[in-house]
Design a protein around this nucleic acid. Structure first.
Lengths: 158, 158
DNA sequence: GGATTTCTTGGCACGGTATGCCAAAGATCG
DNA sequence: CGATCTTTGGCATACCGTGCCAAGAAATCC
């Protein structure tokens, strides 16, 4: 994946599509100061280069009855790459786990889990998470309030 | 916000738009087994009810030169509301902080920070994060590998 | 059980949009 | 300064979004 060179117009395009992914190409073109044709071409290039990975509708968790977000720190038994691979594969298959990162620090993995309520989390924790391969310790941090979620990526450094 | 009643077709619509937010209404209609007219109406209703909060392009962090993701645990001096409100307001204005939750457990706030490199994080940490109002302790957990990011919300519980 | 009411669907028409193509303008480099 | 390469803008066509109305299905009520 060769890193693409982005100019000021590309940055404006990305910022606009990050704000509203369903912008019409005509609207987008006007917003970035281009005519529709070259604007659409730039968007296609950004998509093909992988800068734009895709487009997603962002859903409201509360409206969907997903009232509980939990950040779960997981420690695994160390020095076992096959075990860690198994853990990653298992986590990827869990729909309730919307994010998972290998991290430095106290925990080895940091998961973001979304469930309807505490009862659902209890089931997930006891029946699934604690039984994942190689897990030695689990720490649950419940989200009490969301200050900022899924904020746009910063582009000012370009 | 009265919770909207969602049937199987609505669920399919949400799943499809979560997968590809730029789906044409015609494509979407065919995918969920409806003709375009009622399909579009349902999408509009979901938008107005707030179930669909918006549409966003998902960008590739590595391609944008945002190579470093850090999960930052922040402790504040007290849970007194004025201090916490100041902290939240300040965090919301930081572009590098893409997510921030008030959480239970060791830390009070859990932040997700996205920066180009370690030098940028050092500057953010020393010049900004440590000077935020009421901060008493900061713990940085660096993302080493992303197993799953921004996964779709689970809808099977409906 | 049947009729009425209410909600949802599907088709149609029109205005707007996406998209490929070509010429013109601009930038780059020797 | 001139040639080459890149990017832009406009145009034409096919497709799509969107509002409207009638037909169908579902629920309700007597």
């Amino acid at each position: 994946m060769p890193k693409m060179v982005l100019d000021a117009i590309d940055r404006r395009i990305l910022a606009a599509l990050q704000r509203d992914g369903r912008l019409t190409n005509v609207q987008l073109a006007e917003e970035v100061g281009l005519s529709p044709s070259p604007c659409l071409r730039r968007v296609r290039l950004l998509e093909e280069a992988g800068v734009i990975g895709g487009y997603r509708a962002t859903l409201d968790r509360a409206e969907l009855g997903l009232g509980l977000t939990v950040f779960v720190g997981v420690k695994v038994v160390r020095h076992d790459e096959s075990g860690a691979a198994a853990f990653r594969g298992a986590v990827r298959l869990l729909p309730s786990v919307v994010a998972c990162h290998l991290v430095s620090g106290e925990s080895d993995f940091l998961l973001q889990v979304v469930v309807p309520d505490l009862a659902a989390y209890e089931r997930l924790l006891l029946d699934t998470l604690m039984r994942l391969p190689g897990v030695s310790d689990i720490r649950s941090n419940f989200a009490i309030q969301t200050v900022k979620a899924e904020g746009p990526l910063p582009l000012d450094h370009l």
